[in-house]
Amino acid sequence: MQLFITGWAKKAFFEVQEYVKLCVALARAATSRPFYYRDVVEQLDAVGVGSLTVVLLTGGFTGAVLALQSGMTLDQFGARSVVGRLISASMIKELGPVLTALMVTGRVGSGIAAELGSMAVTDQLNALRALGTDPVRKLALPRVIAGVVMVPILTVISDFVGIVGAWITTVTQLRVASSVYWNSVVMGLYIQDIWMGLIKPVFLGFALVSIACFVGMRTTGGTQGVGRSTTQAVVAGSVAVLVLDFIITKLLISLLY
């Protein structure tokens, strides 16, 4: 048993060490030449525009169901009119960033791991290196930049759509006046909430894409290995998003509030 735990701990430590090495390589690649602009633009489109539909649907329905559930709870206190306050705070500070990151992990993280994994098992990554291209610069960095830029943008869109979804539910189902809802939304927000809602997705975007790149580029074991990497990227990315969300929230609360 002790041997198993020691072996597991060693393996985990090695994985973390390799991930840190990738992060250092990414930092070095971001601050030196060559820089593959065309790949960055392609990835901004793949990560951002490609994820728009799933983010719109998730945001809209989350806002709508949140309004329904909050309405029921607030009714117990006769406070149905302040539902907007709850929606805006929840969506912007927490649900928007986390749900967007989770959706992007499912859609983009799995895609990145599968694509880079296939390249790894068919020697395409080695072929890139043999042709004088650093795979971290050419493949990982553009994807990470796209994650860091597009996840916050998608989060803002998700927040907006969520609040609109909640508005429709509030007006049609809870019978709260539109003006009361929007007034409550604005009243419930502080500038610190906006900052939290914008800072968090930057870190979540970096984490989920860099983990997918890390897992994908280390794929071995043929097509079975690609499948395994895809699953690992989604599981590790999702857990990382939730853990990082807690850590950043704690940090930002102590810094901003």
């Binding site: 296939s118 390249m119 068919t122 020697d123 395409q124 080695n126 072929a127 043999a130």
Partner: peptide, 12 residues
Amino acid sequence: VGMVFQEGALFD
């Protein structure tokens, strides 16, 4: 140095 990989390793 040029290398021809097993199965070609062409970029899909």
